[in-house]
Computed example of a mutant assay.
Amino acid sequence: MLSKDKLNRINELSKRAKTIGLTKQEEQEQQSLRKEYLQTFRNSFKNQLHNVTVVDENGNDVTPDALKESKISQNKRMH
């Protein structure tokens, strides 16, 4: 999870970019913060997916093979 301060800074830079513009340093900071935000979001989303099991109406596990393989791969990296 990205800190509240970093999220506030992302929003501040975005508003500033729309109004008066950003300096080169601020543009670099904005890109860096956005990259960090996206990486955090993607990791969080992957973790959520790894906690999903798809079950049909008969109670059979029909989780896609790609997701099952990804879960196994993640578990191997954690151990």
Rank of each mutant, 00 (worst) to 15 (best):
K46S: 14
I10E: 13
R16D: 14
A66S: 09
V52W: 09
L49N: 07
T53E: 14
D65I: 09
F45D: 15
L67V: 03
K4Q: 15
D56L: 04
F41Q: 15
Q74C: 01
E69D: 10
F41I: 13
H79S: 12
N51W: 05
P64L: 00
L2I: 15
N51H: 07
L33D: 11
R9E: 00
Q74T: 09
S70Q: 06
E29W: 01
Q28H: 07
Q25R: 10
A66V: 05
G21R: 03
L22Y: 01
T19V: 08
L2K: 06
G59P: 13
R42D: 15
E27I: 04
K15R: 15
Q31M: 11
I72Y: 00
K24G: 08
Q39Y: 02
Q39D: 15
L22M: 03
Q74H: 01
R9A: 00
E57Y: 03
L38G: 05
L7M: 13
S32I: 06
E57Q: 04
N60M: 09
N47M: 07
N8F: 04
E57D: 10
D5N: 12
K18Q: 15
R77C: 05
K46C: 07
N11L: 10
N75K: 08
E26M: 03
K18D: 14
E26P: 06
A66H: 01
Q25S: 13
A17R: 09
K68W: 00
E27V: 00
K71L: 05
Q31H: 13
S44R: 09
R9K: 07
N60W: 02
R34L: 11
K68A: 05
L22Q: 02
S32K: 13
N75F: 00
F41D: 14
K76R: 03
K71H: 04
E26F: 02
